[in-house]
């Protein structure tokens, strides 16, 4: 009679696996919620940019590299963190309603069809702040703790 024993332990293993999975998924969900409650990410620009606010579609068009100037006509320079950076992922999701892989695909389609350029990459938020502060027409994003007077915050509709 070895088979009932085996199937019994298999059942227990399966139950254990399902419970672990539920726990992990719950945990992941809880973590996501925790991140969502973290300090918001601000859209920032070079201090001399005259535009004070952008609507979401324009912001998305600028970060997707389809729109090359600010509404007042000044050339825009887009700065982003790497695709795998969690702040980049949060910015894409919360402010652009897009995912990093979708943005990357949009950039590749622009760059390799002659319809646009790739954004400028920065390694971390210190570099983001420094480049946005010193590049005319620059746009980027920062968490609250990285904000200072060297950049201006652009409000989003």
């Amino acid at each position: 009679m070895p088979s009932p024993v085996i199937s019994g332990s298999l059942l227990r293993l399966a139950l254990l696996a399902v419970t672990t999975l539920i726990l992990l998924v719950g945990l992941a969900f809880a973590t996501t919620n925790a991140i969502a409650r973290e300090a918001p990410i601000f859209l920032v620009a070079h201090p001399e940019v005259t535009t004070r606010w952008l609507n979401r579609d324009t912001t998305r068009a600028i970060f997707a590299m389809r729109q090359r100037t600010w509404p007042d006509g000044q050339a825009v320079r887009v700065f982003v963190l790497s695709n795998s950076n969690p702040v980049h992922a949060r910015f894409a999701k919360e402010q652009l309603a897009a995912y990093p892989h979708q943005l990357q695909l949009a950039w590749d389609r622009m760059v390799f069809s002659g319809t646009g350029q790739a954004p400028d990459r920065v390694n971390d938020q210190e570099e983001m702040r420094e480049r946005v502060a010193t590049t005319p027409g620059a746009i980027g994003y920062l968490e609250r703790e990285y904000l200072d007077d060297s950049v201006q915050v652009i409000s989003m509709e």
């Binding site: 090359r68 100037t69 006509g73 000044q74 760059v111 390799f112 002659g114 319809t115 350029q117 027409g137």
Partner: peptide
């Protein structure tokens, strides 16, 4: 195999070739 260059000589203009 592809190689492209692009340049913005003016804020409204993009020049690109591949």
């Amino acid at each position: 195999v592809g190689l492209n260059v692009s340049l913005r000589p003016h804020q409204d203009v993009l020049v690109a070739a591949q």
